[in-house]
């Protein structure tokens, strides 16, 4: 079975989307995500294409959770993760530290799913005062 790393971005209410649109975006956060992936292949969905237009090495596909190969790093905005927890061995949660409305929320209880927090970092984004990055591993 393949194992992948998945990153998501959440607001204060674990929200991901509102009205089919992302809640927010941040260039510095995206740059940090790409850089931290290192040499691992990055897969994102067509929905996220606009965020990665300046990165040639990023692979676009319909559903990265299905199509990404073993060892890939995926950035997920518009898919439920719960059906894929068996293959997600590392979960990265970026937090906006901001309140937006949402009608799609993160559907994983990280503790119940067997993930353990291994690191936390904070940095200033391009349009967000404080972005928190949490890394969880099984």
């Amino acid at each position: 079975m393949k194992k992948i790393t998945v990153a998501v971005v959440l607001d204060d209410n674990e929200g991901m989307l509102l009205f089919g649109k992302r809640q927010s975006r941040d260039r510095v956060m995206i740059a940090e995500f790409v850089e931290s992936a290192g040499s691992s292949p990055i897969y994102v969905s067509d929905f996220s294409k606009i965020l990665f237009e300046s990165y040639d090495s990023v692979n676009m596909c319909k559903n990265p959770l299905e199509e990404a190969p073993d060892g890939a790093v995926c950035f997920i905005e518009n898919y439920s993760l719960s059906p894929y927890l068996d293959i997600i061995d590392t979960l990265i949660i970026y937090r906006w530290n901001r309140l937006y409305h949402s009608d799609v929320k993160f559907d994983v209880n990280v503790k119940n799913a067997g993930y353990k927090l291994v690191s936390t970092a904070e940095y200033v984004g391009s349009s967000h005062d404080k972005i928190t990055k949490e890394i969880y591993k099984k």
Binding site: Q23, R25, R98
Partner: peptide
């Protein structure tokens, strides 16, 4: 949401 979109 609007403010952060404009800033970004």
């Amino acid at each position: 949401q609007i403010a952060d979109y404009i800033k970004e």
